[in-house]
Design a protein around this nucleic acid. Structure first.
Lengths: 247, 247
DNA sequence: CGGGACTTTGAGCAAATTCAACCATTGTGG
DNA sequence: CCACAATGGTTGAATTTGCTCAAAGTCCCG
């Protein structure tokens, strides 16, 4: 596992300050996230306190236990959140996609690390500025609360998966989750694009890459799924998959 | 596993309406929870919209996927939260103790079931009344948000445990978590009372009772812990346990 | 003292991991 | 433009961790 990203260089290179442009008005993530509640004039104000950042695949975005300096709203791409044990074992706690928030916390330190899976574009809000924003828009706090509860429910499903499901059930669950993840990542109702590696899937499911690979092969042979490409999977029998997922 | 609780009967029998009494002023959980931020006069108002409930061990408090009608604040005892698969496999997602909230959600349906582990006393707030309360005390919303983020961080630790830790590491983690759970459940700095059964511990750790039992026995033989009683464990070597827990 | 529930212990088993080899795709330099 | 190294994915065999099934021990409560 080679970790060799010129992360900081990359960051400076790709940072796009945007105090003047009304980029928030054109933001594709707007309809999905907090900004959706705002008036055009307010969006202009939002644009003034936010900057756009681009991250290359494998770029580190935040590091566990380091100070929280900013909040990001993902506008393009996929991000993985994870925790590490001292010997390198990794648990991916979730994947973020367009419209999702990263670094949303009231604590001073990040609870997890975050890394770009694909090319990622994100809208960055400096923490102190965010605080004042929250006071200006009380409805945003409510949205954040809703968001937090939603994540909490997802976390509980994940616990059930990690604690009690078999490898087969976990892989099925993963496919269903990806399929349900709005229509945003889906190419067609049944064709699914998985931007993350087998290793990432394994670390998300609490399995090894070998087990994930073997399970996917088995499902393919059973006619449950079809591997169109390494990162494209067609769900041929959604109802069976759902049944397996929540046994 | 016998499920035979006359839950509803029990509920009616033990419900203590308290519109007039200033029970919130005397509440032991107050300092630990949201109510701590309030003035005496406000506590009186709080007492007017809340009722005290008592649950016997094994009483069901809420059921997964059923409508959320109220929010409880635990004032005495321990509650377990769990999810079930159709074949009976169970995952305990957490234990609640004095000061913790139950049924805190903006969704209409419960994300999990909750059951009393010990004798439990809880302060019940009807949902519609709660909504108006939140509008009266905006600072409470912030507290709820903090609470949600705290739970989210705990959930991520739990995911790491379930997905990547060995049985030994899980049991050590459990003991450390119980030990860290404030001083509220602790008898002395090293003597720990575990109100839940081995089955509950197993369902929390994603293991079987046999594995939990064997692991505890092994730790006892190694001199890491001492079983004072079935439900009392003395942590003899906290630093070693901590090292094992977060390998 | 006896019955029931919970816990511990034991022996064999199975699911998933580990270790190892092989295959496919991609990108690089000669 | 092709050979070849590098990366990621798949497949196979052996191993191991934790599970299943079974029995014995312990605690509690009437």
């Amino acid at each position: 596992m080679v970790i060799d990203h010129d992360c900081h260089r990359e960051l400076e290179k790709t940072q796009q300050s945007s105090g003047t442009a009304g980029h928030c008005m054109r933001c594709g993530a707007r309809v999905l996230s907090v900004c959706g509640a705002m008036e055009p004039a307010d969006l202009q104000r939002l644009a003034e306190i936010s900057t756009t950042h681009i991250f290359q695949p494998h770029d580190t975005i935040t590091i566990e236990a380091e100070p929280v300096t900013a909040l990001y709203n993902i506008t393009v791409g996929t991000v993985k959140l994870f925790k590490l044990l001292s010997d390198g074992r990794r648990q991916i706690t979730g994947f973020l996609s367009v419209g999702d928030f990263l670094g949303l916390a009231l604590t001073d330190l990040h609870a997890y690390s975050a890394e770009a899976v694909t090319l990622v574009t994100a809208c960055r809000f400096e923490r102190p500025k965010l605080e004042s924003l929250l006071q200006t828009y009380p409805s945003m706090e409510r949205r954040l609360l809703e968001n937090a509860f939603h994540e909490l429910a997802a976390a509980q499903d994940q616990m059930m998966m990690l604690g009690r499901k078999t490898a087969r059930e976990r892989v099925a669950s993963f496919l269903i989750i990806q399929s349900d993840r709005g229509l945003r990542e889906k190419i067609s109702p049944t064709l699914l694009r998985l931007p993350m590696s087998r290793t990432d899937i394994a670390d998300y499911l609490g399995l090894t890459t070998e087990t994930v690979s073997r399970t996917i092969t088995a499902m393919r042979k059973e006619g449950l799924i079809e591997l169109v490409d390494m990162d494209k999977i067609r769900l041929l029998d959604l109802s069976s998959l759902k049944k397996i997922a929540s046994a």
